[in-house]
Write a protein that binds this DNA or RNA. Structure first.
Lengths: 230, 230
DNA sequence: TCAAAACTGTGTCCGTCGGACGCTGTTTGT
DNA sequence: ACAAACAGCGTCCGACGGACACAGTTTTGA
């Protein structure tokens, strides 16, 4: 099971030596899946849908991929672009750029928000993102666990903001805002702080990503300084 | 649609004046759903499953709830306990306690991680969590948008840690760790920082929640101090 | 008093989904 | 030449969310 997935994500794709030449390939299947998910969302992704995009029947896909979960894992690692280079040197600018790039990745393929959740076996590309972020924190006096925690913290924030800005601009969001406004109009007395925060001028928006990144980096910098000082 | 959900979550549950007395209730249905999701996970939650727990047929549920999505929304708001009181006074201790309580909520009902994702209409209880956190940030010189961003930031972190500690201890995690170890044994040279961070002594664990909360609060404190100083 | 209105519970049916299984045909090594 | 290994496909299954119509029940108003 997990072995199978590890082989698919990390192992070599050796062509079998006997039998008919495969008409499809893992790459092609993954690309087709990405195309469907990009265009119609992850909910619309089905074996049937992917297969007909490739001009094959649904069952033929199972010759390449054990199941849908593995296909999604494959799509996920293929869809992520390579992480930015981060040759800046300053860890703050590095991690800021890293966060922005990660946000862009989520914006380009919103369904990644659903597929990169929870404990899972990461593929080469996904792991390379973690690697870059961890590397930026090297030699700052943090323990291994702290470095991992810091990267998870940054990732969670970017995920959260990407999630929040996902429905942004859609008609579904408009209906939601209207419904929330109606609720607050009626029960606003029970939620004074919420009402106050929401009726404040919208001002920024899109600043949410920067705001969180700066707070996190400020917090990390304080810790690093404390470690260096003692 | 959204109106329907708003009425279910926020509106009064007036008994219709004519017709047979309903054998079920929104509360009972939600409780049954929570029971299923707690015991077998959200994936095992089906109308059929809930109905047979109540001794009714699946279609009878649709007399109370328009669809599965609304049932899940209802379950979500019913499953969350009330937020802690936070009469402490100090905003840092308040938000620390708030984060810990939120983490406990996710630990008690792990499926909340799946249902409280993305833009959605929150129910009374869920919104009261937001209210408490926003109230703790009142009068600190932050704008409304910044207060909202700060709460989202904290929430994202707690979510991330809860997600990560979800599979903790299961046999699935053991297989995953083994698979990752195998991958790093083979490709570790390409991921030196990851290898270094992971082979470091496990030391803490369970400290991840505290670590992130402290970093975030440190970052917020720095901003607040800056605002107060100028 | 009684029938219409409003409502609940249920059985049936449909389309979609992931996936198991077995058959047919093709390529390659011996 | 023949068997092993493999690709593609058709068929079937169970589970799911949900539409719809029908029967039974309670209340309201004429």
């Amino acid at each position: 099971m997990a072995d199978e997935l590890a082989r698919l994500l990390w192992g070599p794709q050796a062509r079998p030596r006997r039998g008919p030449k495969p008409a499809l390939s893992l790459d092609g299947i993954a690309r087709a899946g990405i195309e469907v998910a990009d265009a119609e969302g992850l909910a619309a992704l089905s074996m049937q849908r992917v297969a007909e995009l490739l001009g094959k029947t649904k069952m033929s896909l199972y010759r390449y991929v054990p199941g849908k979960a593995e296909l999604v894992a494959l799509m996920t690692d293929r869809a992520v672009e390579d992480p930015p280079d981060l040759t800046g040197g300053d860890w703050r600018t590095d991690l800021t750029a890293w966060s922005a790039a990660l946000f862009r990745a989520f914006a380009q393929h919103p369904w990644l928000l659903e597929t990169t959740v929870g404990a899972r076996l990461m593929g080469p590309r996904e792991l390379s993102w973690v690697e870059r972020a961890l590397a930026a924190l090297d030699g700052k006096g943090l323990t291994g666990g702290e470095r991992l925690d810091a990267v998870v913290l940054l990732t969670s924030h970017v995920r959260g903001i990407a999630q929040q800005s996902r429905a942004s601009g859609t008609e579904a969001e408009a209906r939601l805002v209207a419904a929330l406004a109606g609720v607050l109009r009626e029960h606003g007395d029970d939620y004074p702080a919420t009402l106050a925060a929401m009726t404040a001028p919208t001002e920024e928006r899109d600043q949410a990503l920067t705001f969180g990144v700066e707070r996190i980096l400020d917090g990390l910098e304080a810790l690093i300084a404390r470690r260096a000082g003692s």
